[in-house]
């Protein structure tokens, strides 16, 4: 499965681009960034914007390639099997810490070389603006008064926002009727169309509907308030320290040399510090948040332990 130089010879002939395979100076050719989702979603946008901001620093193109499927497990396994020369890297979402617990693939953060983390997205609880629940406490009180009466749309069993709903049930003692959808967008539509009562999705996914007045946000599942929805209280303030954010980082196959990881991390750090990145995160309702190699590794492993310990328990909770 070694890549022959044919593609480079051909590209070189056609475009008169000199391509010496000088391995002394990394990087000397384009870097492939494997995205675990289809084009158009948040993962794709984060990857493409980061790639376009970082490639100037590395002087080689960073090209996104899409390998969607199995909550990202296909892409994680694919990248892990590539040569660890730093020319194939991947976008690491929170699912990299989850897929093993779900049994989709035997891979986790400790099986790859983590590079850095660039953003975080907290979930938010939303209801229809005409619903009787004005606050998080109203909502929880109603859910406790009549267990199972409130229909909670989720973005798919096993998705990160579904876990947050389960954490909410566990943390508050409320009980909902769960209505699974194939993603956040249809779940939010079902609340906007009043087919279900509430949903949990990323702040960035609900913000446009909240601004337009078609959804009301009751709480953000985080310690600190979200920049784009500063008026919405957090679960921690309300006395329920729950919440599992989604995040975006980058990783490569296990065994990448420390220098190459550092070079990539520096490039992404430079990209992270641009105003474009800050602006992009604000537009999409994400929180720009940087963790270097060590901090990201510690964080990802802690996340994996969290999901490993909670998923069996939460799944039991849902199917009594």
């Amino acid at each position: 499965m070694t890549a022959p130089p044919l593609r480079w010879i051909l590209a070189g002939c056609l475009f008169a681009v000199g391509c010496s395979g000088n391995e002394e100076s990394y990087p000397s050719k384009e870097i492939k960034l494997i995205v675990q989702a289809s084009p158009g979603g948040a993962s794709d946008m984060v990857s493409r914007v980061m790639a376009s901001l970082a490639e100037g620093h590395l002087n080689v193109p960073i090209v996104c390639e899409y390998k969607p499927g199995a909550s990202g497990a296909l892409a994680f396994s694919f990248v892990a099997r590539r040569p660890s020369d730093g020319y194939t890297i991947g976008h690491a979402p929170v699912e990299i810490a989850i897929v093993r617990s779900l049994g989709y693939a035997d891979i986790g953060p400790s099986d790859v070389s983590l590079i850095c983390l660039v953003s975080k997205t907290a979930p938010a609880l939303v209801v229809h603006p005409d619903s009787p629940w004005q606050s998080f406490d109203d909502f929880i009180a109603a859910a406790k008064a009549e267990p199972g009466n409130i229909v909670m749309a989720n973005s798919g069993i096993g998705s990160i926002w579904h876990f947050n709903i389960l954490l909410l049930e566990q943390g508050t003692g409320a009980r909902f009727t769960h209505l699974p959808y194939g993603g956040s967008a249809p779940a939010l539509v079902s609340v906007i169309g009043r087919h279900s009562d509430a949903a949990v999705a990323a702040v960035g996914e609900v913000i446009s509907h909240v601004r337009a007045g078609s959804l009301r946000a009751l709480a953000v599942f985080d310690a600190g308030r979200a920049g784009v929805m500063a008026e919405v209280p957090t679960t921690h303030e309300l006395g329920y320290p729950i919440g599992a954010p989604a995040w975006s980082g980058f990783y490569g196959p296990a065994g990448m040399s420390a220098e190459r990881v550092a070079m990539l991390a520096d490039a992404f750090k430079t990209a992270f510090e641009t105003t474009e990145w800050a602006e992009f995160c604000r537009e999409l309702g994400m929180e720009a948040h940087y963790l270097g190699k060590e901090d990201f590794a510690a964080f990802a492993l802690e996340q994996q332990r969290f999901f490993e310990s909670r998923i069996p328990q939460l799944v039991r909770l849902e199917n009594p």
Binding site: R7, L10, A11, L14, K32, E65
Partner: peptide, 17 residues
């Protein structure tokens, strides 16, 4: 073959090997 390679690999960033 060259046309397909140019369209997909060079043009659309689909690795063909």
């Amino acid at each position: 073959a060259v046309l397909v390679y140019l369209a997909f690999d060079v043009g659309l960033n689909v690795t063909l090997e």
